[in-house]
C-alpha cells in the first residue's frame, strides 16, 4: 500500500469498495490537484491532514454536515489554505483568477472557446 492509500484511509475519504467516490466533477478535480501537489513534493500528507483536519473541525463546529459535498468543500478550503501557506500561490492571485473565470463565463459567446483575458 502506498503512502497515499494510507493517507486516504486515515482521512476517511468517502469511498466504496472500488475507491474514492465523488458526487460531482469538481470534487474529483480538487482531489486530483491535491494528490498531484503532494506527489511533486509541495507538502506531505501529514501537513495536509493538519490543515484539512482543521477545516473539518471548523465545519463540524459550525454544524455543517458530513456528506460528500461538505467533505469536499472542506477539502477545497484546505487546498486553498495550503497553497497560500506554502507560497505556491497568493490569495490575491487566486481571487484575481476567479474573477477572470467569472468574467469569461459571463461574456463568452456561442462557438468560441473560453479564454481568460489577462488584461482584466
Amino acid at each position: 500500500m502506498s503512502d497515499f492509500d494510507k493517507a486516504l484511509i486515515e482521512m476517511a475519504i468517502p469511498r466504496n469498495d472500488e475507491g474514492p467516490v465523488f458526487d460531482e466533477p469538481w470534487q474529483a478535480q480538487a482531489f486530483a490537484l491535491t494528490v498531484k501537489l503532494n506527489e511533486s513534493g509541495h507538502f506531505t500528507w501529514g501537513e495536509w491532514a493538519d490543515i484539512f483536519g482543521a477545516e473539518i473541525a471548523r465545519a463540524s463546529k459550525d454544524g455543517r454536515g458530513c456528506g460528500n459535498e461538505n467533505y469536499y468543500l472542506c477539502w477545497l478550503a484546505a487546498l486553498e489554505t495550503i497553497v497560500t501557506a506554502k507560497n505556491i500561490l497568493s490569495a490575491a492571485q487566486i481571487a484575481d483568477r476567479k474573477e477572470g473565470w467569472r468574467h469569461a463565463n459571463e461574456h463568452t459567446e456561442y462557438g468560441k472557446s473560453i479564454e481568460l483575458d489577462h488584461a482584466h
Binding site: W26, Q29, A30, L33, K36, L37, S40, H42, L76, L79, E80, V83, I88, L89, Q93, I94, R97, K98, G100, W101, R102, N105, L116
Partner: peptide
C-alpha cells in the same frame, strides 16, 4: 466550480501540475 477552475488553471500554468 470557479474556485476549483482557478486553482487548476494557475497550478497548470505554473507547471506545478
Amino acid at each position: 466550480v470557479l474556485r476549483v477552475k482557478s486553482l487548476e488553471s494557475l497550478l497548470v500554468e505554473k507547471g506545478l501540475v
